[in-house]
Computed example of a mutant assay.
Amino acid sequence: MKLGAFDIYPVADGRFRLDGGAMFGVVPKVLWEQCCPADEQNRIQLSVTCLLVRAHGKNILVDTGLGDKWDAKYRERFAIDRTPTLLESLKEHGVAAEDIHLVINTHLHFDHAGGNTLRQGPQVVPAFPKASYSIQRGEYEDAVSANERTKASYREENFVPLAQEHRWEFLNGDAEIVPGVSVVVTHGHTPHHQSVKIESEGQVAFFLGDLIPTVSHLPLPYIMGYDLYPLQTLETKRKVLRRACDENWLLIFEHDPAITMGYVRRDREGKYFLEPVRVS
């Protein structure tokens, strides 16, 4: 779709499943299963939606999905179904891996950075051979020194090879990447998680990443158990949703299996709800 002078395209990297309880934290199952039914292993369906932005003659990719470096054990554990793959989705818009100029990772968890790299024989190499990759410096440092609480979410093959190839552009806080495309640090899920703000001709789109992974997470207390700092998430959500509502931002959800984007509104009780936008 058009966003001012820019083009934005949600691009898929298939679907997977995660534990429903972990996805909703302290919210009781009797509440969250009304919107997100679980399978026999208590897992809920999630999409993997990345974003292609065409701005100033550049192809910018926000997040890279799960990637293809998974063995059978993990494919089964997470019910990974990469139909279509990210590269297939990009191809539908006439874009090949070689055409991507810049990759922005919201953070480095396996379902957001898995497609950063790919295997070529015994080696792991950048999946986008002409692109630079942007991440918060603190996020990278946390990823390479992951502890017992965080290491399951980080896979070094998704980010260390890029450092060896000198592909990273490390950021320190909010930053404009190109005119109209900026990153905004949205603390909570990880200490240095960032979302991406796209602004052109008075229109704003905001790619949420894991700040608000699905539409079902719009209520302020609906916060993932995966979030390292849930009270920070709460305050970040409060600030972002207030601005999104007041300034009519288009919100883009990375993990909702049914709704990709929409405009957030408040009802008479002050609760947020979404007016979905159809993706053609």
Rank of each mutant, 00 (worst) to 15 (best):
A97V: 06
R167N: 10
Y74M: 09
E254A: 12
V53Y: 08
E98D: 14
L61N: 04
C36D: 15
V53L: 04
H112C: 11
F253Q: 00
S47N: 12
Q120T: 13
R75Q: 13
W70L: 01
V30L: 15
E40M: 11
Y222S: 10
R242S: 15
T233R: 06
A79M: 05
S153Y: 13
V144F: 06
F273S: 13
F128W: 10
P191H: 01
N42M: 09
P84I: 04
I44A: 05
E269H: 13
H189E: 08
Q136P: 09
G57M: 02
D13K: 02
E201T: 05
P122I: 10
V125L: 07
V279Y: 03
K91D: 10
V26Q: 13
E139H: 05
P28M: 03
S132L: 15
G25P: 02
V144T: 03
S280Y: 13
D256C: 04
R167G: 08
G94R: 09
I177D: 00
G115Y: 10
G225L: 05
E269M: 12
A146K: 07
N172K: 13
R155Y: 14
F253T: 05
V183R: 04
E235Y: 14
E165V: 13
I135G: 04
C245I: 03
R155G: 12
L3P: 00
S280R: 14
I252E: 07
R77G: 08
G4R: 05
V264A: 08
H187S: 14
A55D: 00
H192W: 11
C36M: 15
P191L: 00
H255Q: 09
L208E: 06
P10N: 11
K91M: 11
V103R: 10
R149H: 13
L234R: 11
H192D: 10
M261Q: 11
A38S: 02
A79P: 03
E98M: 08
S216N: 14
G20A: 02
A143C: 02
N42L: 07
F206L: 06
E40A: 15
E201P: 03
V53F: 07
V124G: 07
G173N: 01
R17W: 07
K91V: 11
Q136K: 03
D13V: 01
E169L: 15
T190S: 00
C245A: 08
E275C: 09
V196K: 06
I44V: 06
V62H: 00
A244S: 08
E235A: 14
A127N: 12
Q164N: 11
P191E: 06
T49K: 10
D39W: 00
E148G: 12
V27S: 04
D13S: 02
D174N: 11
N59L: 03
H107M: 06
S153N: 11
Y226N: 09
D71F: 08
Q136I: 01
Y74F: 12
V26P: 11
D99Q: 10
M1C: 07
H56T: 02
F273T: 06
V160G: 01
D256A: 01
P129T: 02
C245K: 09
D81G: 10
A127T: 09
K91L: 13
L18Y: 11
R43W: 03
